[in-house]
Design a protein around this nucleic acid. Sequence first.
DNA 1: ACCTGAACACCGTTCAAGT
DNA 2: ACCTGAACACCGTTCAAGT
Lengths: 206, 206
Amino acid sequence: MLRAAVTLADEVGIDALSMRSLAQRIGVVPMALYKHVANKEELLDGMVDVIVGDIDLPTPGADWKAAVRERVLAARASLLRHPWAARVIESRTSASPVVLDHMEALVAAFRAGGFSVDLTHHAMHALGTRMWGFTQEVFPTPAQPADADARAAMLGRFAARYPSIVEMASTTGGCDDQFEFEFAIDLLLDGFERLHQQGWTSAERS
Amino acid sequence: MLRAAVTLADEVGIDALSMRSLAQRIGVVPMALYKHVANKEELLDGMVDVIVGDIDLPTPGADWKAAVRERVLAARASLLRHPWAARVIESRTSASPVVLDHMEALVAAFRAGGFSVDLTHHAMHALGTRMWGFTQEVFPTPAQPADADARAAMLGRFAARYPSIVEMASTTGGCDDQFEFEFAIDLLLDGFERLHQQGWTSAERS
DNA sequence: ACCTGAACACCGTTCAAGT
DNA sequence: ACCTGAACACCGTTCAAGT
């Protein structure tokens, strides 16, 4: 049933996944779903487990940096197969065993690399949702008028008000999401490494 | 009307904010709202504008690092007043002028600091939702049984399976969210600064 | 022309009636 | 005891009827 829910969400989107539509897909009466899950939240929990469970386990034995990097990129690979998954993961209120397994592996990697408990804790927070392999896309496109002339006029006004954004958008073409993700994760990992080598302790709170 | 929507969401939560409940609060018939907004999405857009518009503008003239830091922390201060706002911001599909103003100011700060267009672009991506002052909380607590004995037994099994998480959770008491946020933003800003000083160019893609 | 009540096409979930 | 259809309490939005 969870697998069916995942593939249905892949096909029709998470908004169109309802208890009723899922039941119809499986060929059962809606109420029959409540034999397997207590409510829709539990269904979503189970769907997250399916995706997180699909994360390919990285090769063990690597140093902490490679281990964390590989695991996070593996999570990303799994997440990318299901565009709706990021939003669902964020909306979860409690962690399932599968979710905790992933986090335990990351925490353990830092600790095995000699990180203090404190620095590990801060590193995990700094990773944030990136530990699941996604970043919220925050370059939304403003609404575009259909008329070509109107669009050109709008672009002019836009460039006048937001010169730096336009410069950036026109210089860099489309974004390479994978590159941006790796750029950010490597920046963070390098930062963690530097703090670790400097013997960072929480006493250094500014 | 937008202000009323914001305060209603503050009071009853974003899930309980419906076109119908908002209309009732204002004392109008539900359909009357559609004189002001085309649909609920437009209402949410407007609510985001109210919150982003409340961001206290930082003192101009500071260097790029202080300017970005101040602006991001100012965004955080505004966001913290409305716990539901983070989720709504993430769900927006198009940027309003107020949203673009905030982004323009950040991009302009990097450029004024001498950052290349490319590095600015990557830095904005690396900031991600942190430019709005929030991080997705990703330390969800597992479901806890009410019975005390059952809870103790569960904790034992938990510690056996997730030793590193338990070590981390028990060493660091509750999380200081503000500290974690500043830790991460400073790590990123330091990373940006280092790359900038090294004359980073996108040719260095690994 | 403007406003608005009823209606439509959905939800998740409860519950009582049927087997 | 188990299953399930109808019903309940909601949604956002359409639309036609009333002013």
